[in-house]
Amino acid sequence: MPIERIGVTQRWCDAAIFNGVVFLAGHVAEKTEGRPLAEQTVEVLALLDETLEAAGSDKTRILSVQIFLTDISKIAEMNAVWDAWVAPGTAPARATVEAKLATAGHDIEITAVAAKQASA
């Protein structure tokens, strides 16, 4: 069974798909880097939506998610955006941890695993 990759660069891809499972790379803010955490979270979730769509999936099919915050004391700020984004009854398994991210100005990074939509 072939592996499909989306958004391939030399160092990573935005998503890899194998056997109906979508593995998303860590997504970080591009336009709101250095802005408040809530703004970065809105952008990162929108980027996840875009990548999931390109992979033939959507947020209701996310199986698990890992959220990395540079300051865990701001989790309520992130959760307010997250809770508005997650479709009712589809919350994935989730882990949220404090971590030093690779680029200053990025306060959140999210990676996920999702199921691809069934073929028609």
Score class of each variant (00 low, 15 high):
residue 35 R to M: 10
residue 57 S to D: 09
residue 59 K to L: 02
residue 22 V to K: 10
residue 52 L to C: 04
residue 108 I to W: 00
residue 76 A to T: 03
residue 92 P to D: 12
residue 30 E to S: 11
residue 108 I to T: 01
residue 100 K to G: 03
residue 42 V to F: 04
residue 69 L to Q: 02
residue 81 V to L: 01
residue 82 W to I: 03
residue 79 N to K: 14
residue 27 H to D: 00
residue 42 V to A: 03
residue 99 A to Y: 06
residue 96 T to W: 09
residue 16 A to K: 15
residue 108 I to C: 01
residue 16 A to P: 11
residue 27 H to F: 07
residue 45 L to K: 08
residue 85 W to M: 02
residue 46 A to K: 15
residue 15 A to I: 03
residue 32 T to N: 06
residue 79 N to W: 08
residue 22 V to T: 11
residue 5 R to D: 01
residue 42 V to R: 08
residue 85 W to I: 01
residue 53 E to W: 04
residue 23 F to W: 11
residue 2 P to T: 14
residue 37 L to S: 04
residue 70 T to P: 00
residue 99 A to I: 02
residue 104 A to K: 15
residue 6 I to E: 11
residue 96 T to P: 02
residue 80 A to I: 01
residue 32 T to V: 05
residue 100 K to Y: 00
residue 87 A to M: 11
residue 11 R to T: 05
residue 62 I to G: 04
residue 57 S to V: 03
residue 9 T to M: 10
residue 2 P to S: 13
residue 51 T to D: 08
residue 31 K to C: 04
residue 96 T to H: 05
residue 104 A to G: 12
residue 105 G to L: 08
residue 13 C to D: 12
residue 14 D to I: 01
residue 90 T to Q: 12
residue 50 E to L: 12
residue 32 T to F: 07
residue 20 G to K: 10
residue 38 A to M: 05
residue 67 I to H: 07
residue 88 P to W: 12
residue 75 I to R: 14
residue 101 L to Q: 04
residue 110 I to G: 04
residue 3 I to L: 14
residue 54 A to E: 13
residue 4 E to Q: 12
residue 111 T to M: 05
residue 6 I to R: 14
residue 114 A to P: 06
residue 52 L to V: 02
residue 25 A to C: 13
residue 32 T to H: 03
residue 82 W to K: 10
residue 8 V to K: 08
residue 106 H to S: 09
residue 94 R to D: 01
residue 36 P to K: 13
residue 94 R to A: 07
residue 110 I to K: 04
residue 44 V to S: 02
residue 42 V to E: 06
residue 117 Q to S: 10
residue 103 T to P: 00
residue 106 H to M: 05
